[in-house]
Design a protein around this nucleic acid. Structure first.
Lengths: 181, 181
DNA sequence: ATTTGAGTTTACCAAACGGTACAGAAAACG
DNA sequence: CGTTTTCTGTACCGTTTGGTAAACTCAAAT
């Protein structure tokens, strides 16, 4: 039997594996068994191997947030952009049942490999939110601190929710941050 | 040449490696080269191999926090216990230059292996802080939420500080949390 | 009908993985 | 002193790692 895939279908599958297992924990054999693609296909799509797979996945996550979070924050009117962000974030992280790939990569030495992508993701998020808050009338200095607090709070909530095995920590934190800004 | 170590000396070294590289990223050869201990010595101290090394390290971290953070929170008068916590946390995480081993383990599949240790660490921290806040006169429900916010804020700050390569995020967050409780 | 080329399968490779076995060196202890 | 216990160095084991090579399949374009 022969099944044919397209790259667009396979990237989200690989993303989920990296999210679950981390960069080092993700082996080609794990990818093979969970996607059904043999090494040949994998290396056809990603000639650069594992590192290119991770970079592609990172770029896709970044693209998703750029489209559904950062851009609305920049383009829409502040209140609506921020409302869009809350919904998108809650949806993306499955209300605390899913972890942040970028955050996970940031913690171990994987960070060095993808430093600029990781830094860019968080920097653009904070910046977009900070500007939206400022446009909504918040004092600029306060807006910067609040934006940082929100992004960091989301990451912390994901860590804690996962550690305690209790996704409610995430939704509770999202509500609290929502009320605060 | 022959150099002799004691287990007590070697655990912190291994802890630092796990912190840097994560569980999967830490290989025996890396441990060997960074500690100077051969496999023979390693398996003499930790017959259970890599998993026992990680478990031991996790227990040591837990013990440190139990001693210098959780216990003061429980025994000292609330205000002083909390003050001790801020100092210990800032010190332990090198003002944002170091990452939380337990938090890092919580994110990937390593969590499953050490689930109870990881959950216990965070649960006891939150509980001790919550009770201290309650004893200080804070409304019990508020105290519970604040305790959660503090622990999660610290974890998020570590993630963000590392992601941005900017430890100041951590100290700034610590100050903000300090002011809030 | 033939060519083409993206996508797949299978078999391989050297290196590194976690782990084991064991002989010997150094302390500890009688 | 001699013996026992603790610790270390080295060689080895089977398995898995990331990666390569090349033969193959099959739909679409010519």
């Amino acid at each position: 039997m022969r099944t044919v895939y397209e790259k667009a279908d396979v990237v989200p599958m690989i993303a989920e594996i990296f999210r679950d297992l981390g960069y080092e924990g993700t082996s080609l054999s794990r990818i093979t068994e969970r996607t059904g693609l043999g090494k040949g296909s994998l290396y056809h799509f990603f000639p650069g191997g594992k590192e290119e797979m991770a970079a592609t996945v990172l770029a896709e996550v970044d693209g998703w947030f750029e489209r559904f979070v950062f851009d609305p924050l920049r383009r829409d009117d502040p209140a609506q952009g921020i409302a869009t962000m809350w919904a998108a974030v809650d949806d993306y992280f499955r209300s605390g049942g899913r972890v942040c790939l970028v955050g996970a990569f940031a913690l171990d030495e994987t960070r060095d490999r993808f430093a600029t992508a990781i830094r860019g993701y968080f920097a653009r998020w904070i910046e977009a939110l900070r500007d939206a808050l400022a446009r909504a009338g918040r004092d600029p200095d306060e807006a910067a601190l609040d934006a940082e607090e929100v992004v960091l709070g989301i990451q912390g909530a994901l860590v804690l929710a996962r550690a305690l095995g209790d996704p409610a920590v995430f939704t509770r934190t999202l509500d609290r941050l929502k009320r605060r800004v």
